[in-house]
Write a protein that binds this DNA or RNA. Structure first.
Length: 554
RNA sequence: GGCCCCGUCGUCUAGUCUGGUCCAGGACACCAGGUUUUCAUCCUGGUAACACGGGUUCGAAUCCCGUCGGGGUCACCA
């Protein structure tokens, strides 16, 4: 069994593509030694493809834990993916021209391909005419076509090669959808070689799947209408037809298609709310932000205009706007765990049939079967993904969580490990209980990133917990400071115990003791558990903050 | 518009092939109560769906037909 994932390197890996890759991976993985998961880069569109996008996709897949057996080589630390044990490469379509040329010759010789000389304008005119007549435009080889003459003419004239679609309906046998019949009338003579000599997607995919021995083609349902063309091409070339499985589509919660453009839309909306001037005022000084009032206005006025992801990132940052996660990289930077993303993705359009929803990659590959793939499109529910991620963060081994957090921070928030240093494990423990993502881990720890003498006290918190009832809270705070000053073991558990004992000895409820301390240390009525809050601050800072607070409010 | 795919709680889904065990199960979200030093967690309980209309049948979420609804696709992009 050979499965393949064949992305086009025009940007980061889309979350829908990630699910396709995951399913392909699981299917091959479950076949054990007989299974091969292959990665191929479909870069026949020279204008839109880029090597950096291809590299990005490799990295996205590796991060997700979706390793490929064959394909471009990729090394990350101790793991290496890719290679060519069966000698079926190269894996970039731009490097496989000779194979495509051979197919073109074969088809041309058998009369199943023919050159066509229509210009773009002529084709557009034909389409317009069809539309005016309320017909669907179907390109067919002209009546009285002379193959020999056309072949001679193609030596000197710009042309494309088209496939002469055999006059018969094509039945696609899909592992998910069953038999689907496409009438001949709907199948036109598709272009298989572009004017620049490159193969189109249809031809390249058919040739490569055959040569690479691909047995199972899993892809999004948007490809279903292409499949009869591929089957016809396979038959014309004498190829085997693989098992097809078309996966249900993934949509936004509102039913619209999940696309990179959603990020742009969200940014446009936010900029419109605050106004171009204000957006520019805050974003203008950020490194790498290259927009002007004019360019922003032009962007806002043009629905199809899109800003680069770096520019959007800056805007999102200064406008405290959360861009919707669409690409794998977005989920990574948002602080989701790759194994959780995969777990959630596995449930979109697939289910084992029991009530088990949580499993790791290994278990998924064992549970996965083609038969259990569903037919209905799914809406992407970030809340459920978050719930899964939250649950995983809660149950992760503390040391591991700290390690994962550090790795994430090094890429997206380097200040955190710089300030926290050895305290990261304790900080992760302190913050995890309200963190849905790795990114969330920082928010409850804001007080650690502020100097002892720069704590800003929240008025309401002060009134409620310190100055109310003639400074009842402040009294407790003074006594607590004395007690804490005498505490030798400054571990969270010890601190927690000491404060508990203190409250009991004073005949006070925990709230009467904890809240004043909280306000003194963080300025607010909300913080992580006291043991961790004090533990992170250390004894010196704790006492300094209490002293400053008492002075400020007495 | 043509062709193609799909239609179970708000969402992801189980159940549909092999009609009765389903006055429809699980998860997320939501609501209520409880635990708790704050926020949160956690625990308990609850609300909530077979798109509609016909048929077939003793019996239909399950089979058939139609309607409506949603989506995909109609490029020298993939």
């Amino acid at each position: 069994m050979v499965t393949r994932f064949a992305p086009s390197p025009t940007g980061h890996l889309h979350i829908g593509g990630a699910r396709t890759a995951l399913f392909c991976w699981a299917l091959a993985r479950d076949a054990g030694a007989n299974g091969t998961f292959l990665l191929r880069i479909e870069d026949t569109d020279l204008k839109r493809s880029s090597a950096s996008a291809a590299a990005g996709i490799l990295e996205d897949l590796a991060w997700l834990g979706i390793g490929w057996d064959e394909g471009p080589e990729f090394a990350d630390g101790s793991v290496t993916f890719g290679g060519d044990p069966r000698k079926v490469g190269p894996f970039h379509q731009s490097q496989r021209q000779a194979f495509y040329d051979r197919a073109f010759q074969q088809l041309l010789a058998s009369g199943m391909a023919y050159p066509a000389f229509d210009t773009a304008d002529e084709l557009a005119a034909m389409r317009d005419r069809a539309r005016a007549d309320k017909r669907t435009f179907i390109y067919r080889r002209p009546e009285g076509y002379d193959h020999a003459a056309a072949c001679a003419r193609m030596q000197t004239e710009e042309h494309v090669l088209r496939f002469a679609m055999p006059e018969q309906a094509v039945v696609v046998h899909d592992a998910v959808l069953g038999a689907v019949e496409f009438p001949f009338a709907e199948l036109d003579d598709l272009v298989i070689r572009k004017a620049d000599g490159m193969p189109t997607y249809h031809l390249a995919v058919v040739v490569d799947d055959e040569l690479m021995g691909v047995t199972h083609v899993l892809r999004g349902q948007e490809h279903l209408n292409n499949t009869p063309r591929h089957v016809a091409l396979q038959q014309a070339l004498g190829y085997r037809t693989p098992v097809f499985a078309h996966l249900p589509l993934i949509f936004n919660p509102d039913g619209s298609k999940m696309s990179k453009r959603d990020k742009d839309k969200a940014a446009k909306k936010a900029v419109k709310v605050v106004g171009v001037e204000s957006a520019l005022a805050s974003a203008g000084s950020v490194d790498g932000f290259s927009q002007t009032a004019d360019s922003l206005n032009a962007w806002l006025g043009d629905k199809t205009a899109q800003l680069g992801s770096d520019q959007l990132g800056v805007l999102a940052g200064v406008l405290t706007l959360e861009l919707p996660e669409i690409e794998v990289e977005d989920f990574r930077s948002a602080g989701y765990l790759p194994e959780v993303v995969c777990n959630y993705l596995a449930l979109l359009g697939w289910s084992k049939g029991d009530d088990i929803e949580r499993f790791d990659m290994d278990e998924f590959s064992r549970r996965f079967t083609l038969e259990r793939i569903g037919k209905t499109a799914a809406k992407f529910d970030r809340e459920k993904l978050q719930a899964f991620n939250f649950d995983t963060v809660q149950h992760m081994d503390p040391a591991l969580l700290a390690e994962r957090w550090r790795a994430w921070c090094e890429r997206y928030d380097p200040q955190v490990p710089q300030v926290l240093g050895e305290r990261m494990a304790m900080a992760a423990e302190a913050a995890r209980q309200r963190a849905k993502t790795l990114r969330d881990l920082r928010a409850p720890l804001g007080f650690v990133f502020i100097a002892d003498d720069e704590i800003v006290y929240d008025d309401k918190a002060v009134a409620k917990n310190l100055t109310k009832n003639e400074g009842e809270g402040l009294c407790v705070l003074r006594d607590a400071a004395v007690m804490l000053g005498g505490l030798a073991d400054w571990s969270p558990a010890s601190i927690e115990g000491a404060i508990n004992d203190f409250a009991e000895s004073q005949g006070l409820g925990m709230g009467k003791v904890a809240q004043p301390i909280r306000v003194a240390l963080t300025g607010a009525a909300v913080s992580p558990g006291l043991g961790h809050t004090l533990g992170l601050l250390g004894k010196t800072s704790t006492l300094a903050r209490i002293e400053r607070c008492v002075k400020a409010h007495s």
